[in-house]
């Protein structure tokens, strides 16, 4: 239940994140009597119960923090069973699919549930997510997680290959999300699943050939507003940087003494002051705080294709 907005203290059975360091969090389900090992030493679950989320805990060899799981933090810490979607793409998917509390969504496949958690946060408590996964163990694992995280009443996990067997939903959903090797095979089934009022669809594919075929199929099935995009997060690190100043000869050095005597005093002053300061010690360095983009970054996740089905084109 710990994903819930109104929950502020840790209880038995809650999933909490033990924050060990930046981008380094251990998901833990709190159980009485259990102990968890971190790089800073053992954490007793009994010590966590009743604590407020955000609390700093003293471990034998350092501090850890007790964080409330959010879909974003969960994406960073969840057990990977597949490749997952990350928050930049996830955010775009949810926004472009027009999701909000009460939306009904079909998702294939479930994968590791990274996107599912973000969808569930947005559509709860009255919406519903129908999620499909062709790998049996994965679908069971995902179902377990959703229940543990308090999403049981908002989600139906089905073990099925929607390519071939289809969604088997008749005009019930507002939006469909496809992350499949051959998404074009599911467009017709996705269309059937859409409400009579129409809806939105998204397909996530890493390869442009997949996108090409998907777009052709979407177009053939009367989807409109077909848009393909790519988004990548560029992260900045803050650094205190310095650069060496070079010195320039100032006017009083270049101009001969006679001419200098003729020149106007204010001008001379303005030129002399900074240069003489620069010649002294550390002021040779130019200091500044810099937001430096990461040297290496993921250059590609996948192409996101969105399209609309209007009520006109449902049948």
């Amino acid at each position: 239940m710990s994903f819930n907005a109104n929950k502020h203290n840790v209880g038995c059975g809650d999933t909490v994140l033990l924050y060990v360091g930046y981008d380094n969090m251990l998901p833990v389900v709190v159980e009485k009597g259990k102990t968890h090992q971190t790089k800073f030493g053992a954490v007793k679950h009994d010590d966590l119960i009743g604590k407020q989320f955000g609390t700093r805990l003293q471990c034998p060899r350092g501090w850890i923090y007790l964080l409330r799981p959010t879909p974003e933090l969960w994406t960073l810490s969840l057990p990977h069973r597949t490749q997952i979607l990350y928050t930049t793409d996830i955010s775009m998917v949810i926004f472009q699919l027009d999701l909000r509390p009460g939306s009904i969504v079909a998702e294939a496949g479930t994968g590791s549930g990274s996107l599912s958690h973000a969808i569930l946060r947005t559509i709860a408590p009255k919406g519903h997510l129908h999620t499909f996964e062709f790998h049996k163990e994965r679908s069971e694992k995902a179902r377990e997680e959703f229940h543990l995280h308090g999403h049981a009443q908002c989600v139906t996990v089905t073990h099925r290959d929607v390519c071939g067997e289809g969604f088997q939903l008749e005009h019930t959903v507002d939006a469909v999300f496809l992350d499949l090797p051959k998404p074009w095979e599911c467009i017709l089934s996705a269309k059937r699943a859409m409400k009579k009022q129409g809806g939105r669809i998204c397909s996530f594919s890493p390869c442009i050939e997949q996108v090409q075929r998907t777009c052709e199929e979407l177009s053939a099935k009367k989807f409109t507003d077909i848009v393909t995009m790519e988004c990548l997060a560029r992260h900045f690190n803050l650094q205190y940087a310095k650069l060496q100043n070079v010195s320039f000869k100032t006017i009083d050095e270049t101009i001969d003494p006679q001419a200098e005597a003729d020149s106007e005093p204010p001008v001379k002053k303005a030129n002399v002051t900074p240069s003489s300061r620069d010649r002294r010690g550390d002021s040779d360095m130019h200091h500044f705080t810099s937001a430096v983009p990461a040297i290496n970054m993921p250059g590609h996740t996948g192409f996101l294709t969105f399209a609309t089905l209007t009520s006109n084109d449902v049948n």
Binding site: T228, E230, L232
Partner: peptide, 11 residues
């Protein structure tokens, strides 16, 4: 601290 690089495609 981040920004997003965003590009659309003609398919």
């Amino acid at each position: 601290l981040s920004e997003t690089w965003f590009r659309e495609y003609q398919i």
